[in-house]
Design a protein around this nucleic acid. Structure first.
Length: 461
DNA sequence: TCTCCTGGCACGTTTGAATGGT
DNA sequence: AACCATTCAAACGTGCCAGGAG
């Protein structure tokens, strides 16, 4: 991954000197987050990432690993991750592609994963990459281990929250900022549907080394078709040309005529990325097969989240046509919100720039990325949403405070650790969407946008 | 019949205790 | 006694696959 420093000139990222303005400068938009191993994520995203969910809980692969900068070294921060529905649909895998199979099931109890090292000083978070390796996904709504509960055959994407707080108890009073990375969206499944994803996982996950064809091909794979197990014969052969083709192309209103699309880089991208196919009609492909002359622009680039004002138009143009299945089936959901697939030109840095009133309202772009809401206009942010709360009535302060929907008197049970909490693990939280709605409504007066998906698990506060 | 989910299985990685050498 | 390196086994994480539920 390219260093942030290297990208600054390219994306108008405020120089460090801006931070010299004082501590507030940090809070007002200098926090920057980058996803490690963006190439791997993009490789998965191109095919249509799937994440296995099991009752006992399953780790993500690739797992989230981020880098942070712009934090106040001596201030303490808490890092959290939650999963947000991409849209309001349930999907099914049919003939090599994902199709809408109906409306989404009622949201399971939403939980937020708290990084085990939280809280820690900014210097701690910035000195090394931050891994969320231990984060586990489950489909067990009665899970007692605090794993993040998801519905199978539904699409989600992780959100990363940075909260400046000295301890878990003060989180709700603290400012926090939220980042997402478009290439990290995935479909939760109980068994892999797309054999391409399986192959990619096996190739990259060390724990799945035993399933690799190379060298020691054990009996499990030796006596069967490595690509098309009997049960998965429904999936066609993986021809080289099809390998990276979008699994969602069935949704991209531009249809299922791959040959026709092969005319330019942009077209090429359509064939390779379920997301980029529609989001970057004229953009360069992020595919490994792409002929992008500047690798940095493709994979090593970092993504601004949201982008600086001056950068918005471009990004909107790039992401305007979300290839999200939902978007192509009528749910504009986040499409507009800029859940753009990995944007090859856009640096993969999640940044909270200084607030600019003229910019799109962050809160409008935020949650909209998750639900079947009307396609947002130019105000949509790009690939990453910034949950900044400039709209909350404090111009110039992009970060927002966490308020408990239940008021200050609301106890904070699960922050303190196992104890009598419902979920033993101290680093997990549960959430209540209804409560969440109240919370967001309180802040933004726009319940429609904020009510569907929680930012945090307030129910346990 | 089809789709989706579950649980057991084999295999590889990770982790930490035990051991031995310096 | 303290430190370091190596070994080894248990725990854990994976995808595969047969079978069951709806």
């Amino acid at each position: 991954m390219q260093s942030i420093r290297d990208l600054k000139p390219n994306f108008s990222v405020p120089p460090p000197s801006s931070m010299a303005a004082g501590p507030d400068a940090y809070l007002q938009g200098n926090i920057r987050m980058t996803m490690e191993d963006p190439e791997l994520w993009k490789n998965f995203c191109e095919i249509g990432t799937e994440m296995i969910i099991t009752k006992p809980g399953r780790r993500m692969f690739p797992h989230s690993k981020i880098n942070l900068s712009g934090l106040i070294p001596c201030a303490k921060y808490i890092l959290l991750v939650d999963m947000v529905p991409e849209d309001g649909f349930r999907y099914k895998w049919n003939k090599e592609k994902w199709e809408v199979a109906g409306k989404a099931e009622p949201q399971p109890p939403c939980r937020t994963y708290l990084h085990p090292e939280s809280p820690a000083p900014g210097s701690h978070w910035m000195k090394q990459s931050i891994s969320f390796l231990k984060l586990k996904l489950t489909n067990n709504t009665l899970d007692q281990h605090g794993h993040i509960i998801l519905h199978s055959m539904h699409r989600y994407h992780p959100r990363f929250h940075i909260v400046q707080a000295d301890d878990l108890f003060s989180v709700r009073w603290s400012v926090f900022q939220t980042f997402t990375f478009p290439e990290t969206s995935f479909t939760a499944v109980t068994a892999y549907q797309n054999t391409k994803i399986t192959k990619l996982k096996i190739d990259h996950n060390p724990f799945a080394k035993g399933f690799r064809d190379e060298g020691t091909n054990k009996k499990r794979r030796s006596n069967k078709n490595p690509v098309c197990p009997d049960k998965r014969s429904k999936t066609s052969e993986d021809s080289p040309a099809d390998f990276c083709r979008s699994s969602y192309e069935g949704y991209d209103g531009e249809g299922g005529d791959p040959p026709k699309r092969k005319e330019a880089d942009g077209v090429k991208e359509e064939r390779y990325s379920p997301w980029a196919a529609e989001r970057e009609p004229g953009g360069r492909t992020g595919s490994p097969a792409g002929a992008d002359p500047d690798p940095r622009d493709v994979y090593n680039a970092e993504q601004l989240v949201p982008a600086p004002a001056s950068y918005q138009p471009y990004r909107f143009q790039e992401y305007g046509k979300s290839p999200s299945p939902s978007s192509s089936v009528g749910s504009s959901s986040h499409g507009g919100s800029g859940r753009g697939g990995f944007e090859s030109r856009v640096p993969d840095v999640a940044t909270v720039p200084d607030h600019d009133p003229s910019k799109p309202r962050a809160h409008e772009a935020g949650p909209s990325a998750c639900g079947p809401q009307p396609l947002a206009g130019p105000q949509d942010y790009t690939g990453v949403l910034n949950m900044t709360m400039a709209q909350a009535g404090k111009p110039g302060v992009i970060s927002h405070h966490i308020y408990s929907p239940y008021g200050a008197e609301q106890p904070l049970p699960q922050w303190s650790g196992p104890g009598p909490a419902q979920y033993p693990p101290p680093h997990h939280l549960t959430a209540d969407y209804a409560a969440q709605a109240v919370h967001h409504g309180y802040h933004h007066g726009n319940v429609a946008e904020w009510s569907q998906y929680p930012l945090f698990s307030y129910s346990c506060w």
